[in-house]
């Protein structure tokens, strides 16, 4: 009886959640046709980019528990790879984005290796150092990156001859990329691989005793996260059409980390909300003029004091039990 009731309860919450998601999707598809100012559209597109960045960092920091202060480095690698390939070799966005993401993933793999030995603050310092190295290389390797002059004239993406370099085009492109990231990260987190990440965060020794190769999984987390950050970087380069090392400083890493912490470590909806708030807040606070960043900082401090677990709270994964499994329990209850 109780299990039957539980099943029913589970179903109704699941259904209402589904309805909310469908409405949200329907509304968001209308956004580019609402005659919004290009300023607002631009902000929404930036939110999309930061959703990808935040989610990918959350995989490493929120789910696998490895503090990284160097996420902007992968963002930069994706952006530069894409910019260089498209301006010099005239490759299409879809190829350069894939290459950018893969190269970032490769560097994520390399950066993941020191995590074999380092933990906590020590790892954070290594990632911070890596972020600086990437920025300084971008600043000084004139032949490849044009240094402080940056790379201008990055072409807009197009597909089958259709130019996506319009507001609507960019909007739907980032929409698809962000949605793909959300789905992929969600599926990873709710799987054997994701459970291994979370187990490492919760208790590394116990995770090891369960047969989880903690080294391999930590490197994997870094690699996946870097892949998506690289993807976000590629889109960014093709969107703003000009990049320079100034866009990928340590501040950028902190901005991404703030999104993760504000939204909730290990929470996917939290990261989405965090990105929405942190990207749009500075604009909403613009009327405060000089006090804008002070307010921004104050909001963060108050938030952390009153709700340290973030807006959506810490990770909540729950294994979905399908009909088969639940019917087996209720059968057992009946016996």
């Amino acid at each position: 009886m109780k299990t039957a009731l539980d099943n029913l309860k589970g179903k109704s919450t699941k259904n209402s959640l589904k309805i909310i998601i469908i409405i949200a999707i329907a509304l968001s598809l209308l956004v580019p046709f609402l005659n919004l100012s290009s300023f607002v559209i631009r902000m929404i597109i930036m939110v999309g980019i930061y959703i990808i960045l935040g989610l990918s960092l959350n995989l490493v920091t929120g789910f696998a528990g490895q503090l990284s202060l160097g996420h902007a480095a992968f963002y930069a690698i994706g952006a530069y790879t894409s910019a260089i390939l498209s301006t010099r070799f005239e490759m299409s966005f879809f190829i350069t984005a894939l290459m950018g993401a893969l190269l970032a993933a490769f560097f994520g793999f390399l950066l993941g290796l020191p995590t074999l030995k380092l933990e906590g603050a020590y790892l954070a310092i290594v990632t911070l150092g890596f972020c600086e190295i990437v920025r300084i290389v971008a600043l000084n390797w004139m032949g490849l990156t044009r240094g402080p002059m940056g790379i201008p004239g990055i072409p807009a993406p197009s597909i089958f001859g259709i130019d996506l370099g319009t507001e609507v085009g960019y909007y739907f492109l980032i929409y698809i990329l962000a949605a793909a990231t959300i789905i992929t990260i969600y599926r990873i987190v709710n799987s054997r691989v994701g459970r291994a990440f979370i187990a490492i965060r919760e208790d590394e020794l116990a995770a090891q005793s369960m047969g989880i190769n903690t080294t391999m999984y930590k490197v994997l987390a870094f690699t996946i996260a870097a892949f998506f950050a690289g993807l976000a970087g590629s889109f960014y380069a093709h969107y703003v059409t000009y990049i320079d090392p100034q866009s990928f400083t340590f501040d950028e890493s902190i901005q991404i980390l703030s999104i993760v912490i504000l939204g909730g470590m290990g929470s996917i909806p939290g990261t989405i909300i965090g990105a929405l708030i942190l990207v749009t807040a500075p604009e909403f606070l613009r009327s405060l003029q000089d006090y804008r960043m002070v307010m921004y900082g104050a909001v963060l401090i108050i938030m952390m004091l009153t709700r340290p677990q973030g807006i959506m709270g810490a990770s909540k994964t729950k294994i979905k039990r399908n009909k088969l499994a639940s019917s087996k329990i209720s059968n057992k209850g009946g016996e």
């Binding site: 990873i188 799987s191 054997r192 691989v193 459970r195 291994a196 979370i198 187990a199 919760e202 208790d203 020794l205 116990a206 995770a207 005793s209 369960m210 047969g211 989880i212 994997l220 996946i224 810490a314 990770s315 994964t317 729950k318 294994i319």
Partner: peptide
């Protein structure tokens, strides 16, 4: 040494890690 922020069910399923093989 349980995985405190994982559910009871998840804790047990993590215990099956070596006997399962679902990858990325």
């Amino acid at each position: 040494r349980l995985f405190s922020n994982m559910t009871v069910l998840e804790n047990v399923i993590v215990g099956m890690h070596t006997r399962t093989s679902n990858g990325l």
